[in-house]
Design a protein around this nucleic acid. Structure first.
Lengths: 222, 222
DNA sequence: CTGAAACGCTACGCTACAGTAGCGTAGTGT
DNA sequence: ACACTACGCTACTGTAGCGTAGCGTTTCAG
């Protein structure tokens, strides 16, 4: 039946196609990391990947389409921690985010995506997707805490995310100050103090940082 | 004497020069607001300003130089409030920042500057300058508070700035949620609770918002 | 083995942009 | 009135990029 035919033709992609697309996407991602969205040109992708420009246009209708697909794999979801309590979950997540802001590729790509989203509607959806993907673990953890009654009544998950990630983003992209462990720790503590029920419980015992060694505290400004 | 000659030739600029430079800078700023750094081309500036391209290159050695000068006027320093106390000063500043993030031109330009600073060292100084200019009022107010002994001992001015502006920036550029008054108010309160000496002083009486009507709470996404 | 699909290659056309050169004109200070 | 300066204009070089067309070759599936 046609259905079977269609299913088979969709499942079994030609090995040549798979090869070409993978090579193109890999190099696109490479250029994206190095030069942002503006640093990606089809000619350059073709040159580096060894895939002919015409072949690229056989798989993607335009440069924008290629960018969208390449970006869709940026910042793939990290695991959601489950330490049993909001404190531990949040601590683990924020330290992980700080580490990613220091080292991950997407941290240098995101500004150009934000900029693109500000004016090109063609790429605005990209920004929304990426933001959702990156913040998803935080939202999950916050919602779980809310369900357990760990959040103060007037605190919504979205507020928690803003309070805790905002200062980190600020440091990474605006002030460019080092994202050291002391700063991260304080951000977490301040957030917990406000967000949890029964504030003023003191030194917030326990909840050790998830990442062991945060020794490299400064950006390598090349 | 030569000194006098030099002084005069620097003070009295030819009216034609003044005219041309002003027209060029104005249009550059216009294009910058509309399309970010990537949206500025010398040809387009020339077309819109009526100033010949050759004349532009008589005044600026390169496109980058023009961009630097045009950006140097972006986000000119707003007045530093002095209500007598840290609470009032901070409240006024943060509400003002929120308003600017909603309406000011530089709010749509900054992402492209951040992106440029991430890779083009030619424009990295630009970012540092702009950041310093925008955050200066906050630093001033925080330092004043520190001098008056209003800040908790372990809080540095830079921490205060990060804690209070970070969440606003996050909402403006990353989550794109509305920057409503309730959110701003909470950010201020949370910051004050942590930063001031004697925490837990209750409802923080007084300190009315500086901007009277914060009615327009949503972005106009065009 | 054979046909079809995917591929690489070269060569286009088109647009946009940075930056320069030469020349004639209009405004400026003295 | 004079020299000087800034200016506008046209034209040009050179580069980069997007997207397309045609043709011959490789590679896969049946």
């Amino acid at each position: 039946m046609e259905i079977n035919q269609v299913a088979r033709s969709e499942d079994f992609v030609d090995a040549r196609v798979k090869r070409s697309k993978a090579a193109v996407l890999a190099q696109t991602y490479e250029l994206l990391s190095a030069g942002g969205i503006g640093g990606v040109s089809i000619d350059e992708v073709s040159r580096r990947s060894g895939v002919a420009k015409t072949t690229i246009y056989r798989h993607w209708p335009s440069r924008a389409a290629l960018l969208v697909e390449a970006c869709s794999t940026v910042g793939s979801a990290s695991a959601v921690p489950d330490t049993g309590g909001f404190d531990g979950d949040l601590t683990a997540l924020v330290f992980d985010l700080a580490e990613q802001l220091r080292t991950a590729r997407w941290a240098s790509v995101l500004p150009s995506i934000v900029d693109a989203a500000e004016r090109e509607p063609e790429l605005a959806g990209l920004h929304a997707d990426l933001h959702a993907r990156l913040m998803a673990p935080f939202v999950t953890v916050a919602e779980r805490a809310e369900a357990r009654g760990e959040l103060a009544g007037d605190r919504r998950p979205a507020d928690v995310v803003a309070a805790v990630t905002g200062p980190l983003f600020y440091r990474r992209w605006f002030s460019r100050e080092p994202l050291d462990a002391a700063f991260v720790e304080r951000v977490i503590q301040d957030c917990l103090d406000h967000v949890r029920v029964q504030p003023g419980s003191g030194a917030a015992a326990g909840a050790p940082p998830a990442t062991a060694g945060n020794a490299a505290l400064h950006w390598d400004r090349a």
